[in-house]
């Protein structure tokens, strides 16, 4: 059976690459610290020696729109192009091509259906920055095959926080049952408190530093009870209109289980709190 080598949950600040590669005299003061933290975080994936990555993100109206928006979707293609024209334009993220892993995609899709998660699927999927940002930060060589999973944190009505947790638990069971000697890592991205296109956007900190502090505490201690007792769609809206991406971090903890992280770090950046979490289930890589 496959080994779940690591689970990573990270924020996906789309300006990381631009902020840390522009000429040093133009860089923001925190660029060097940001780069150090990201490189230390990257090491937590490298150390796990993964062979395949299950990537969790959310399409930001790049391939999918309101005429046909999937709640949960799995990519089943042999290969994935990445990043759209408007992401290159706004964030300076270059194009990528990632290899797929059709065998695990198919096994995952069937396993999800068997567990009551009736996923939409795509055989021609172009990935957006929710998946490429964590590739840039945690696996910049983009040299591993991926199985992309998209969730709807973006176009209401959204699934509940509990559903994201349960989906993570199901993905874990399926990885554990995958008949292979490969080492699989799951890498997912989302947000802490976040405001976009509203009055609280682009302030000195994220819109709700108190939520960010609690969220980091809950995730790093594996405290799903507190998350499910405190986090609702309404509470996330109060923390910032785009905070619902937090549910993808809940999903990632669902893959790991209700256990403390082996590693976590954060960085208070303009406009958001960046945060990085790594779990090693059953001491896989520790």
């Amino acid at each position: 059976m496959a080994t779940l080598a690591a689970v990573l949950a990270t924020t996906h600040h789309p300006f990381y690459l631009k902020a840390t590669t522009m000429p040093p005299e133009q860089q923001m003061p925190q660029a060097a610290e940001w780069k150090r933290k990201v490189e230390a975080y990257r090491e937590t994936l490298t150390r796990a020696k993964p062979d395949i990555l299950v990537m969790v993100g959310a399409d930001h109206f790049h391939q999918f729109f309101l005429d046909n928006y999937p709640t949960f979707l799995i990519g089943k293609a042999p290969r994935y192009d990445a990043t759209f024209y408007n992401e290159e334009r706004e964030f300076g993220i270059p194009k990528y091509v990632l290899e797929g892993h059709e065998e695990l995609s198919n096994f995952m899709h069937q396993g999800l259906m068997d567990r009551g998660f009736d996923f939409a699927f795509s055989h021609e999927l172009k990935l957006d920055h929710s998946i490429i940002c964590p590739i840039i930060t945690t696996r910049p060589d983009a040299d591993l095959p991926v199985v992309p999973i998209y969730t709807n944190i973006f176009a209401p009505p959204l699934p509940s926080p509990k559903r994201f947790w349960d989906l993570g638990r199901a993905i874990r069971e399926i990885i554990d049952e995958f008949p292979s000697d490969k080492r699989i890592a799951a890498v997912g991205s989302g947000h802490l408190s976040l405001e976009l296109g509203g009055p609280r956007q682009f302030k000195e900190t994220g819109p709700d530093p108190e939520f960010d502090r609690k969220a980091i505490e809950w995730l790093s201690t594996g405290n799903i009870e507190e998350i499910l007792a405190n986090v609702t769609h309404e509470s996330m809206t109060k923390s910032g209109n785009a905070t619902h991406g937090f549910m993808d971090l809940i999903l990632m903890m669902g893959i790991a289980g209700p256990i403390p992280t082996a590693y976590h770090d954060n960085l208070d950046l303009f406009h958001t709190m960046e945060a990085y979490f790594t779990w090693y289930p059953e001491g896989a890589a520790a």
């Binding site: 109206f61 334009r89 176009a155 296109g197």
Partner: peptide, 12 residues
């Protein structure tokens, strides 16, 4: 209107 679409296009 969706906040992401509105922010992105006017940034552009």
């Amino acid at each position: 209107a969706h906040f992401f679409l509105s922010l992105t296009i006017f940034i552009a």
